[in-house]
Amino acid sequence: MLVRSTLFSRLSYMSRENTDLATELADVQKQIATGKRLVRMSDEPWSISQVHQLREETSVQSVFKNSANQATALLAQAENGLDQSLNVLSRLKELAIQASNDTYSQDDLSGIAEEVSNLKERLVNIANTEFDGRYVFAGEAYNSVPFDNTFAYVGSTNEVSIDVSAFAKVEVGFDGSDVFQGAVDVFTAIDDFITGLNTDDSAIIQTAITDFDDTYSHMANYLTRIGGEVNIAEDMFDTATSIEMNLTERLSAVEDVDVAEALTRFSMLQNQYQINLQLTSKTRGMSLFERM
């Protein structure tokens, strides 16, 4: 209880209240303008660690999404290459079966040999597939042509992977020596086949049929594997997207302002402020001296 109240202590009290209200108004205004509940770190020091963690996790998801996209693109290229390779092998096998019939003349066989030679050219072009500056079947040495002009493999035997989440990796670059020379060296097999055709050696042609079969199923396995990798990459993209959304929501719950609530508070404070201003101006005339 105060014994005596003076005009000036009343006025300075009002002025302090007004300053406080104005400061609070400014704070709420800033929150509404920025949409953030936490404008400065010291607004809630205990949330800093959580906010940082959420921001870190959120931002890393966009890297994973990027990686998953890139992986999908690279895998599509490998898939496409293998598809074509399988077509080439089917054609080779078809030709080998035709050639194994004794009804063909040497001229016919020579014609087949020419087509086979073209097919070999196609196959090596596929093996040297380049996408986005990377040779898909060169393993880790993807910056140079994996098969040289003698059809020898000069790439790396290590496969290349891309991280699509903190734990999942997707293989996107393959060991060409295994793909094209793993079961049987397909280039040598083709060369042998051509020799068989030119010399009309049915034994060699028979071997070629088996070789092409083996290579076909070996590559088909790769195709299945790539299908699996594509699935992983696509799943991880979706996962990263949903994690990102989830985290963004959580982050927003921690650091964003409830606009409706803030607006209500703003108008309440504004009313109070106006009342106080009027009160202050009325306090002035309250003195006996005014009536003397």
């Binding site: 014994v3 109240s5 000036f8 202590s9 009290y13 003195s287 006996l288 003397m292």
Partner: peptide, 24 residues
């Protein structure tokens, strides 16, 4: 500080009404 200032004003501050009465 506000409390103490107010307390101080109540003890040492000038109340104009009081002064007006004394003047009379």
């Amino acid at each position: 500080m506000e409390d103490i200032n107010e307390l101080r004003a109540s003890i040492s501050g000038v109340n104009l009404d009081e002064e007006a009465v004394k003047l009379m």
